[in-house]
Structure formats: structure tokens, C-alpha cells
Amino acid sequence: PQNLTRTNFEHLERLSNRSRYVARSCKEIRDRYNEQEDGLYYLTTANGMVYQTFCDMTTAGGGWTLVASVHENSINGRCTVGDRWSSQQGNNLNLPDGDGNWSNRNTFGTAEGATSDDFKNPGYYDIKAEDMSVWHVPNNFPLDHWNLAAILRYHTNNRFLRLYGGNLFQLFKHYPVRYNIGSCSNRGPAVPIVYDHGDRETTRMFYGLKPRKEFEPGFITFRAINNERAAMAICSGVKPIAGCNTEHYCIGGGGYFYPDQCGDFPSFDYDSLGMGQGWS
């Protein structure tokens, strides 16, 4: 501390004050302690497990708790190491749930590292929430640049999570992310979104040329299923409406995708990477 400048010390002091808050979510910290600054905070689960995560205290009234990040470490991988949100056991018919991380209490990664690798904290299964927000942030950006760097940010505002147990852990218990759980028509809920950065048209343009005929932007959709009966967890920003080739625009999954599209961003690279040609 002796070599800290005065300003720096004040900042550190304020940060250390945050460690005194006891709350189960960023919303509680905002409501109970009137904290208005984005940044890292400590939270506690019902059983008293302490963890640190990022709080968005500014978007649409603030109080948003970061609970997970889905990061594609290798677009060429096929359910290989790093594909925690589908499977790390290869494309395996005998493992329909893959790693099962959408509906278990496993945690991994760190808040500061959430744009460099997958992240999941106890808030994912512990917090009872009403709405979700989603940020698409370019890989490897540091935490204090996330908001500005994000290519897409939106949130729901109709408290839909109340209908599905209050969090994604419970929602995906109702709608398992499992190969062969059903057909394309057995899709989970699609919820309208409010944009914080970007709009329906920018959302559309982020996905491939061919997928644009298959979805309607302006929604977040859970547990889509494609033609080959593979399940995906989240279609971010869109609602599938036709075609059922959801592996090109929905993320996460179970443990098997026919013929060979397994992975966290299942078949986003079908027509190789580039300027959105074909299905890519």
C-alpha cells in the first residue's frame, strides 16, 4: 500500500468495501446498498458459498448478475476440450446429455476470464430471477471494456423466468438439452427482447445468409431442436420459425449432433468462416 497514490488507495478502499456486502444477487446489492457501479462483487448462495462475479448496475435500472458465458475456443473442434456447453466427450450417441452443464451445479471459469473461456458460477443455479440479459462480447476483451465492445446487448422484461423455476438450471430441467428428446416442433419457449445495443436488423446480419429465412429476430429462444433431433440450449436474439437447421444459429447442446456438427457453436462454420456465406 505504501507505494499507492492517494486516488488509487481510495479506489481500492471502495472496492474492499464491496466485500462487506452480503447478498445473493447483484439486484440485492443494488437495492439494499444502493451500489450503482458496474464491476466485480462478492455474492453468497443460500448455503453460504461465496463467489465473485460481474454486476451490470447500469442497464435498464441495473442489478443484473453475470452467471455464465458461452465461449467458442475452437470453431473447428467437434465436442472437444473446451466445449463445456455441449460435450467434451466427442460426438457420442451414447452420451445424449453431453457434459450436462445446462442443468447441473458444476461451475467453471472466472468472471474476469469470461470472454476468454467458458464461465459458470453458483448464481446460475442459486439465484431466483425473473428476467435475463445477454451480451455478445468479442473474445478476450477485458472486463471494463465489455459494455462498450459488445456487438449485441438485449434483455427480456416480461419476467418469463417466473414460469420456469426462476433460473436456467430449472428451465433446462423442464426442457432437457438432450439428443433425441423430441423433434423440431418440441422447441422450448421463445421470449421477446428489448435491445440495449443493436436491433433486429443487426441481429439478423450476425447470422449466415441461409439461416435468415429460418428465424425471426427480436427473441431469445430456449431448447431448440433441429431436423436431426439434436438439441441446442439458446438461440440468442432469434426465434426459429422454419426449416429447423438451428445448428447454424443456436448455441450450446447435448452430446450428439448428426452427422458431425457437435460443439458449443454447433455448425456456425458449415460454409467456412467469412462474410456470412451460405449457412455460415
Binding site: S25, C26, K27, D56, G63, W64, T65, L66, V67, A68, S69, V70, H71, E72, I75, A114, T115, S116, G123, I127, A129, E130, D131, M132, S133, V134, W135, H136, V137, P138, N139, W146, I151, L152, H155, L161, N167, L168, M205, F206, Y207, G208, P211, I234, S236, H248, Y249, I251, F265, F268, D269, L273, G274, M275, G276, S280
Partner: peptide
């Protein structure tokens, strides 16, 4: 999907 989408992490928040 576009390069931007493929090379961006998807951060999920609750409130």
C-alpha cells in the same frame, strides 16, 4: 454465422 458472432463470447445475466 459471421466472424463477429463466431468470435464473440455470449454472456448471460439474471435479474
Amino acid at each position: 454465422a459471421s466472424k463477429e458472432m463466431t468470435e464473440a463470447a455470449v454472456l448471460l445475466f439474471y435479474r
